[in-house]
């Protein structure tokens, strides 16, 4: 079985006294071993919520998680604290958005990593830990010196590398990177992405990369999932989706990025705003902003249409994957 993670009808709802916010709604996703999946979408589309929910790091008091998330034979949604503890970092590790703050400012870096190492190997000897950590530091291109330094003595890019090294401490099967390179300048970002891709070839790790920067996905992932307002619009191989986007939203998203090559075109955006996520909406969530929306789109939720291992959730396509109406070839005009 090659499948590492399968998410089925996964929903995350934030609840407070006065209202519910449906942050992630009935998403379905499969990740195979060795994949690197980039989840893209605008701010507030539920990318980080999805990741945090998978890691079960959201406060249980005010969040409801439903659905299934089968991760190597265990359902992440149903695990109790003890089982969760065993899975965390051993199998499932994460690198967060703001790695600048990912370490305690008043403890030296080395001992912090030691503590993390000891969570799952409490009896590890000091030499064993040290050699493991220095190996990882070298892997992310840092000198051993970092071990005895405090976080404030490193630059943002170095701290990011430390975070990545920490996430690899126990050889996790799945690594979630939540905007892990967003705060960095493009040069450092490029270097780190290269290192990540190289690392994956040596370590057997599957990666989910959450970002709003499509170029990051293009540079470092083989699959892409486009998310909008808590739902997936399109999932598929990067080479297919970026070259030939099927969903009107993906088209809109891609046309808001400038291209390096070719004719200089005016950038177009998608008019309108994200819908209010505290109101349940009938039909396709993107319909109000979609220029090709029909009556059907406003009333009925589209089902996933499979097209050579890619999936798109749009009424423009028949279940076989062909355009239902040739005139409605997805386009995006201002």
């Amino acid at each position: 079985m090659n499948q590492l993670l399968e998410i089925k009808d996964f929903s995350v709802t934030y609840v407070n006294k006065s209202k519910k916010v449906y942050a992630v709604k009935n998403v379905n996703l499969k990740i195979n071993k060795g994949d690197s999946l980039g989840i893209v979408g605008e701010s507030g589309s539920g990318k980080s919520t999805l990741a945090m929910a998978l890691l079960r790091l959201l406060p249980e008091k005010n969040t409801q998680i439903t659905g299934k998330a089968n991760f190597i034979g265990k359902d992440l949604v149903q695990l109790n604290q003890k089982e969760l503890k065993n899975i965390r970092w051993n199998e499932l590790a994460v690198v967060f958005q703001k790695s600048m703050n990912a370490l305690s400012p008043v403890h030296r870096i080395g001992p912090q990593i030691e503590d993390i190492y000891r969570v799952h190997k409490p009896n590890a000897s000091k030499e064993e830990i040290f050699s493991r950590i220095t190996y990882l530091l070298r892997l992310v291109n840092l000198s051993e010196r970092v071990y005895t330094l405090y976080p404030h003595e490193l630059s943002g890019g170095m701290l990011q590398r430390v975070s990545i090294a920490i996430s690899l401490v126990h050889n996790p099967k799945l690594l979630i990177m939540d905007e892990a390179t967003t705060a960095l300048d493009v040069v450092t970002q490029g270097q780190i992405l290269d290192e990540i891709v190289k690392m994956e070839q040596t370590l057997d790790v599957t990666r989910i990369m959450i970002t709003h920067d499509i170029s990051v996905v293009a540079a470092s992932c083989n699959k892409i999932a486009v998310m909008y307002a808590g739902e997936f619009m399109e999932i598929g191989y990067v080479k297919d989706v970026l070259k030939n986007p099927k969903h009107p939203y993906t088209r809109g998203l891609l046309s808001s990025f400038p291209s390096l090559k070719g004719e200089k075109l005016k950038l177009t955006g998608i008019s309108g705003y994200l819908p209010n996520l505290s109101v349940k909406q009938e039909g396709c969530i993107f319909a109000p902003r979609c220029q090709q929306a029909t009556e059907k789109c406003k009333q009925e939720k589209p089902l996933g249409v499979e097209m050579n291992e890619n999936t798109v959730w749009c009424h423009l396509y028949s279940s076989g994957g062909e355009l239902i109406n040739e005139d409605q070839k997805p386009v995006y005009k201002d």
Partner: peptide, 29 residues
Amino acid sequence: NEDFIVTLRATGMSERKIFNKYILRNAIL
């Protein structure tokens, strides 16, 4: 609510250790 505490939680470290070693040391300043 600091990010490093979320990271430590994600590593599976026990709440007690996080509180005694990491939260207290930072919060006592």
